[in-house]
Nucleic acid binder design. Structure first.
Lengths: 347, 347
DNA sequence: TTGAAAGCGTTACCAA
DNA sequence: TTGGTAACGCTTTCAA
């Protein structure tokens, strides 16, 4: 490959200057034309020439140079779960797709960034280097005040974190897992259950959510004399579930909220294998899951589940856009979604 | 908030020039110190002063400016599935976490980018704007030659796409789904099955994989006289599965490779609800899934599954790093993983 | 209608 | 041991 004219792997990417040379105009003209700011400034045939030159050269603008000059980038950074894998459920994936698309229409570039971070501040520093227009921390530990401050000082217009409250300078997106617990608890109580187990997953990263759900069940039970709530440790393995099932008689529970459809399926199977029956009749054990996954509907009995209804992706995208445009907007807590109970045969 | 000294949201982020002023040194010195290139150049106490100044100002280097100057960015872009949601299985999530971490140790910033793209070239253009060091297209349609060329011309050192072969200028990461089909087919044939159905998911984005898996089963059957293979359309809904189960007698199949554990679970349940029994005995219907998901082991009978063993994340990260360092490396096809059959009770 | 030039934040080179 | 300066690619203001 000694052809000096067009090597397949160009050593240096074409710049707007190269386009200008080829079209016989100035760099300024190129910029105007390619950014649609040429109306009434540049002759139509000149525009055509510029576009053709750009096309032929395979010119692509350099986002870094652009945002350097503009003083602000257009990327919206989302913190990806680094190790807490289970967070990537189909729910979140689906939300993500819609969200990215909505951001795109608003002129942003949505990007998932998952670097292993020793601390929230370390993560914030890594994110800040990219000078994003906005940062959303939807997973892992919520951003704390120092992390938010770092991001704000680095020029991030909008900082959003999940969690019940917004640190100074940030906004919060809140999915109140307590509500899930309340729904499950009230449902079970209404069906006459009084001794309710609540699964606390052994897997790390889920502890915060699990705690809230437990609190929700407790809150529901508080209004019902004679009701008892008992936390249960469970790992996502068949051994762990078998152990819990073996201990069941000693526990004397008549119902369980299993955090999750996965934990629920696991436990339900273990209980059945241990000779107990699961279902809605008083002498059976009632089981409630969450997330309303498809496989859980395939079990017999069909699993009752607390479904998460996440807010419309474009609503959140609009919110982010608004915050970017008005960085000084008063911090607030925004609902990220709600829960709904899908009653089926297991309770 | 009229305090002119320290507004919480700084209007302009601190620059290296600000750090230099505060420390009473030049910008060059700041650069040396903060990049660890100061050994033997800058006095220890000067270094301390610079670091202190940076700390106090909350200085974070500007990635865009850095990569502008360096001529090359350090981000590794991974194409995220924009709409083909199912790709985000636990397998991929787990790989991703390890991969990001490995990239981080090599000095890269791994980033998932999922913009809605009208075509591969449009996607490539969006990616090229970020001037990434490397691009990995692990989902969706493989990159075609024009897309690769665009990226290469934009200076992307390493372009990797999934698929059986590498377009000019790109490398390929290949997970040969045919092998999964072969494994499933051979397994079923060895168990005496001769009339094998293969599920083709109705969901788009899976067609390519499904086709390969079907081809694999066909290849296995080709070596076995009397064996027949029949494709079956199935959507991921209970209605679709019920319809297929109802048609079963007419199909006269004694085995099915269901693409996926999810499809397998769905179909297995539908068959059972229609009064057929699933299992390894000759008069039962044999069902094989794939991906070896936990819930599939909870069904009765336990589901036989083809497990995907993805390559170690740090091996892939090392590969990418090598390609970035040597952009002219001869394109090759690299195995992304292998398959293994986990025989259980359903076949 | 077009061109020239400045400046965004960083780093590498060369001079002091 | 340190500082000045130029250059990366782009947008934008001002002048022609």
């Amino acid at each position: 490959m000694t052809d000096p004219a067009g090597p397949p792997a160009t050593p240096t990417p074409p710049t707007s200057a190269a386009v200008a040379r080829r079209a016989g105009v100035s760099r300024a003209t190129v910029s105007y034309v390619l950014n649609g700011r040429a109306a009434g400034r540049v002759a139509a045939h000149t525009q055509a020439r510029v576009r053709a030159a750009a096309e032929e050269l395979g010119y692509v603008p350099h986002a870094a140079a652009r945002s350097l000059r503009a003083g602000r980038g257009s990327i919206v950074l989302m913190a990806a779960p680094a190790d807490a894998v289970p967070a990537f459920g189909p729910l979140f994936s689906h939300f993500l797709a819609g969200f990215q698309s909505a951001l795109h229409h608003l002129g942003y570039t949505g990007v998932l960034h998952g670097a292993p971070a020793a601390s929230p501040v370390a993560a914030a520093r890594a994110w800040a280097e990219l000078r994003p227009a906005a940062v959303l921390a939807l997973h892992g530990p919520p951003l704390d005040a120092p992390a938010v401050e770092l991001l704000r000082r680095a020029g991030t217009a909008a900082v959003l974190t999940h969690g019940p409250q917004a640190p100074p300078g940030a906004h919060a997106l809140f999915l109140d897992h307590r509500e899930a617990g309340v729904l499950a608890g009230e449902h079970l109580l209404a069906r006459g259950r009084r001794r309710i187990g609540v699964v606390l997953p052994a897997e790390p990263g889920l502890a915060a959510f699990a705690g809230s759900r437990l609190a929700g069940v407790r809150a529901a039970a508080a209004g019902c004399p004679g009701a008892e709530v008992r936390p249960l440790d469970l790992a996502l393995t068949e051994e762990s579930a078998a152990r819990l099932a073996a201990a069941w008689p000693a526990l004397g529970l008549d119902a369980v909220f299993a955090y999750n459809d996965e934990y629920a399926m696991l436990l339900m199977r273990a209980l059945q294998d241990a000779g107990r029956t699961v279902g809605g009749d008083p002498e059976q054990i009632a089981v409630v899951g969450a997330d309303d996954l498809l496989p859980a509907r395939l079990l017999r009995p069909r699993l009752t589940s607390v479904r998460t209804e996440i807010a419309a992706p474009d609503r959140i995208a609009g919110l982010v856009d608004g915050l970017v445009r008005d960085p000084a907007a008063a911090p607030a807590v925004h609902r990220l979604g709600t829960f709904r109970l899908m009653a089926r045969d297991s309770s």
